[in-house]
Write a protein that binds this DNA or RNA. Structure first.
Lengths: 250, 250
DNA sequence: CGTCTGCTTGAGACATTTCAATACGCGTGG
DNA sequence: CCACGCGTATTGAAATGTCTCAAGCAGACG
């Protein structure tokens, strides 16, 4: 991660981009709209970027926009007063940030890698929702997918062992990277701390389970533990406890 | 799993009811619609009831309808192949069951108490969504609320201690019962097994923590442990670990 | 009055956390 | 080029919270 690049371009508004060239055009909230609807969306959009590690919104803060992740990876976390933290969402390109109808963020939003968002002014977006059925319909579909993902994650948090949790996450990352090349290979977007936060474990337990999975020849590591290789995804999925279908957190 | 259907009046279709007299009219998916839209909804609705303990839909089963809970309490559960079970949703009156655009249930749906649903044929409901913006908008709103609730529950499952989990659930139930009478009193809709399933714990741990909370004078019990009393909700919320605002599972 | 089901209680086993130390990768500055 | 320091990851040993297994108890119902 953390490539070096002029901070100037990173932070301010970026040049408006042609939606048809957008990498998430067919998957984001705009996926199903076209013509006049798309024009209205394009007219209210703007781009903004955050560097890895930066906070996009604090728990309880005003969040004056909604938007789509164009590039990078962000997390949603909720925390207890004594400092315990649980990740409750992992946002990847095309995922939607913010909630129409609400002005404050119920969780902290953090950039894990460098992130670029395609922002929409919240009020104008809400107005659009009323008479742009394709946008509203796509947003509903995406929300229901996230709900399913959240519920799969509840099963993990409530019932899976540490080994199963780690295997589940690794399988997810490997599957998403999903080049058909063998062996499967993926660079982890999340460090150990973020993984622990996601999995409801401590850093140490995550580390131990990754080591154990390596020792048992289920996975291999490269690049100082930031890259995972897997020759036999089926074996990893067995370690994950369920067949592993369809899990994909939002 | 064997469908047992010995029960008589409970299962068949019930007489159609006037929507304006419906107890969930102003909270369910129909809340914001009126006039022609409401007429269309009313025209496709039917009622059906299940007795406490009955299965409404199995994991992976075809679910030919969507609908609203009119009366009673149902749960969504997901399970691992070796039998471990995690509840992932607790549905109360006005909550929505099923998902437009999907024909099979991703979780098992079970009646906890006697339950009555107001059903809509899935295909006709989907058609309605396209040109009934008030229904679509309300459904989006409800889905986003459920997503928030699911994420709060992820914090509980990932980071809270057994005592905090039990306190959180009891506070939720007491708050929902919410008669302003003091002391706060509520009959638990969930038995110990369902509570354990919800909280990611075992029955024994739930029982022990309830006993401990009683021993420490945070709550009192009546009716053989099925009714909870609380003189000091603030104290219970402290035990719950966070301030306890807004948590309400869907 | 016995049986069933749901709830409670106890004692020991076990997984994960906690606390502490060490190792690694990497950019910086001498 | 090496020494240093810093953040991140690994490993170890002990503490602890929850689970497991097993028994006992209470109320509901025939």
């Amino acid at each position: 991660m953390a490539e070096i690049r002029p901070l100037v371009a990173l932070r301010g508004a970026m040049a408006t981009q042609d939606c048809n060239a957008c990498p998430i055009r067919h998957r984001a909230v705009c996926a199903k709209c076209a013509g006049a609807e798309l024009d209205r969306l394009a007219a209210m959009k703007s781009y903004r970027s955050w560097a890895a590690g930066e906070t996009i919104a604090l728990e309880g803060d005003a969040l004056p926009f909604v938007g789509s992740i164009v590039r990078g990876c962000a997390t949603l976390t909720r925390s207890l007063e004594d400092g315990r933290v649980q990740m409750v969402g992992l946002l990847m390109p095309s995922d939607f940030v913010g909630r129409p109808g609400r002005t404050t963020a119920p969780y902290e939003v953090t950039a894990v890698t460098d992130v670029t968002l395609c922002l929409f002014d919240r009020q104008r977006f809400e107005a659009l929702l009323i008479d742009a059925p394709q946008v509203a319909s796509r947003l509903l579909e995406m929300s229901l997918d996230e709900l399913d993902a959240a519920r799969d994650w509840m099963l993990l948090l409530g019932r899976k062992t540490a080994r199963e949790r780690v295997a589940t996450l690794l399988a997810l990352v490997l599957r998403r990277a999903a080049a058909d090349a063998r062996p499967l290979r993926a660079e982890l977007p999340l460090g150990r701390e973020a993984m622990a936060s996601y999995l409801g474990l401590t850093i140490e337990t995550v580390s131990r389970q990754i080591t154990a999975l390596k020792r048992d020849d289920v996975i291999r590591l490269e690049g100082g533990g930031r890259t995972v290789l897997c020759d036999d995804l089926a074996a990893l999925l067995i370690e994950a406890g369920d067949d592993g279908d369809g899990e994909m957190p939002g």
